[in-house]
């Protein structure tokens, strides 16, 4: 899968290309906005990794011109700016995600994969976290390569958790997505499904676990090797 990396620091861009290649991406690296425009005109990329501090043009202006011509290629913004007033600027201009330097390579890869897994994007058909994966079209759940039978509601909950693996998913999101606006939800309906799902994951030997963050939501995290 081809990724365009727009970053003016030659050393960093080389390391990023190397790291992305290890995770199965092939990265084209350009050092300024002008070259980025040329590359985008010549070729279609699965995603763009965009540094905001470019020598010839502000990264945000480049992002606006990409979005301005109706190009919806997922854009992951990189920035060294993380001031109190900076945080949301990148997302407002049309970025899909936002990563502050320095970042772990696996975080960059995970974020890229999450972007590509969004409905309609290239990786949307299979979701994987730890040794658990879900075929989104066939609705089949695999734990450590073995098919497991989950109910439709449990599969739906697992899908939401897998799409945001490693991050807390607000409880409200489950309620909205599972029960829509019908409003006919018992206050602990989600808890009941999560409880059952948690047990089934444990019974199936999953390396991931659903943690309850009381008052906020649920977190699918990988169990540490020792556990």
């Amino acid at each position: 899968m081809r990724i365009l990396v727009v970053e003016d620091n030659a050393e960093l861009v080389a390391l990023l290309a190397k790291g992305l290649a290890r995770s199965g991406f092939s990265a084209d690296a350009v050092g300024n906005a002008g070259d980025a425009e040329h590359s985008l005109a010549a070729m279609r990329y699965a995603a763009i990794v965009l540094d905001l501090g470019l020598p010839d043009q502000d990264g945000l202006s480049l992002l606006r011109s990409i979005r301005g011509r109706g190009d919806s290629t997922p854009v992951l913004v990189l920035t060294a700016r993380d001031g109190v007033s900076d945080r949301v600027n990148g997302l407002r201009a049309g970025a899909d995600d936002y990563l502050v330097k320095p970042f772990a390579m696996e975080e960059l890869v995970a974020r890229l994969q999450a972007l590509l897994r969004r409905p309609g994007n290239l990786l949307g058909r299979q979701l994987t976290f730890g040794n658990v994966s879900l075929e989104t079209e066939g609705r089949q759940v695999f734990i450590d390569g073995t098919v497991r039978v989950f109910s439709a509601r449990e599969t739906a909950i697992l899908e939401i958790l897998l799409r945001r693996g490693g991050h807390v998913v607000p409880k409200r999101l489950f309620e909205d997505q599972l029960f829509g606006l019908s409003g006919d939800v018992g206050s602990n309906a989600v808890e009941v499904y999560v409880h059952r799902l948690r047990k089934m994951l444990a019974d199936g030997g999953a390396t991931v676990k659903i943690h309850t963050v009381r008052g906020v939501g649920y977190l699918l995290a990988e169990e540490k090797a020792a556990a």
Binding site: K18, G19, P102, M105, E106
Partner: peptide, 16 residues
Amino acid sequence: HELRTPLAIMRARVDT
């Protein structure tokens, strides 16, 4: 920028 760029390079180097 001055502090985070070298850290980003360092982190990327260690990660690879």
